[in-house]
Design a binder for these strands. Structure first.
Lengths: 226, 226
DNA sequence: TTTAAGCTTCAGCTTTGCTTCATTCCACCG
DNA sequence: CGGTGGAATGAAGCAAAGCTGAAGCTTAAA
């Protein structure tokens, strides 16, 4: 799950980012409107958190432009004003939810999860492929009855695979969903992490869930068959 | 345990606060209704103590608004009038208990504890994880047969962990529950206190109860396993 | 006013995970 | 049944996260 945060106050963004990362989201923080727009148009975010007070381009302007690109990313707006007019305007512009500052982190978290859940991909909170189970609430992974400990990146990768079972995912797509902005250039990082995952998820089991599609990418599947 | 107190008479609020702090609650005092509403909506309090005579927004109004947000936080009302009508009105508005001024501190304390105990989180007064025991009534902590002395913050932290055994708690969540205000930005205060706790709770024992989940936060668990 | 206890910050040190790179392996091609 | 390019793998450097001791600060107690 990849989140873009538009916030120019470093303390706040650092605090929020730390919390989101702890929940295993890949978070990009951008501090000005124009730069944010560029990011929003370049990467496939699952959610945007938008502070209305933004240098370079107002929050309203940003929201309009994103929506004009007929993008349906959920947008959570952070605002200082809490009036009815404000609310109406925001929903008009296409915001999906809003939060007035100051807010408790727990409250932000609740809304983030709610917005992500209602997206097209995520109905349920538990993903299943074969006898492999990933619980997004507690972030626990089990194969059969055996618990599996994953690092943050391993977890995100597995989550992405399991969101798209039986579908071949290219290395580029995987990088764009699982890694954040800190990434550049050509790399075999996906291969390496698939290896890590396999050693924890598939090793010692008869049925291998993660498959390589030569020349294309990877796929997860719970059934036998060639 | 976090308490919000709405009281505009400084002497009284100082007196009560000191008493509550001595009992290891984290107490925020706000002296006007509107500000109090903001706090109540922003932070997750376990209890609200409300003086009916309040500038800015009447106590009744406050109560109504809090309840309209369908918040189930217990509210203890302080009032000067002691009539049947008054009582009925208060309970109608959603008060959970009330106290007429003047009152003895001990009396307040009894009611506070009663309300906290019946809250959604606190069914039993003793928390247990492995051979570690925390008694909320007497605020005593024991591991096996050995008594452990904790400071106020250490106690709150341990209590929060033990309320959520086997669940990973992020630093942000911990800060919001254990410390009064959300901290500005980034701090490692949680790390430091976990260290303090460990030195008292885990050091010298074979089975370590408090675990670090790297990149995420901390967890308490009483069973062995990996 | 002095003293002590607890709270918070900070910096350096350790551990772990992230990423790159070089080498080896293997599927698919002719 | 070799050859070739994509994939797998192990190892190693690097960077981030967490640990820890100590010091400064605040508050309460004597």
């Amino acid at each position: 799950m990849r989140i873009l945060m538009l916030e120019d106050e470093p303390k706040l963004s650092a605090f929020v980012k730390r919390g989101l990362v702890a929940e295993r989201y890949a978070v990009d923080v951008i501090s000005d409107g124009l730069g944010g727009l560029e990011y929003a148009e370049t990467f496939p975010y699952d959610l945007i958190i938008l502070d209305l007070m933004l240098p370079g381009l107002s929050g309203e302007e940003f929201l309009m432009r994103v929506r004009r690109r007929n993008s349906f990313v959920p947008v959570l707006v952070l605002t200082a004003r809490d009036t009815v007019q404000e609310k109406v305007k925001l929903f008009d512009l296409g915001a999906d939810d809003y939060l007035t500052k100051p807010f408790a982190f727990a409250e932000l978290m609740v809304r983030v999860k709610a917005l992500l859940r209602r997206g097209p991909v995520n109905r349920s909170s538990t993903l299943r492929v074969g006898d492999l189970e990933l619980d997004r609430l507690t972030q626990q992974v089990k194969r059969g009855s055996r618990r599996i400990d994953l690092t943050a990146k391993e977890y995100s990768l597995l989550e992405y695979l399991m969101q798209n079972p039986e579908r071949v995912l290219s290395r580029n797509m995987i990088i764009e969903h699982v890694w954040d902005q800190s990434f550049d250039g050509i790399t075999n990082i996906v291969d390496v992490y698939v290896r890590h995952l396999r050693s924890k998820v598939d090793d010692g089991f008869n049925l291998k869930l993660i498959r390589t599609i030569r020349g294309t990418g990877y796929m997860i599947r719970g059934t036998q068959e060639a």
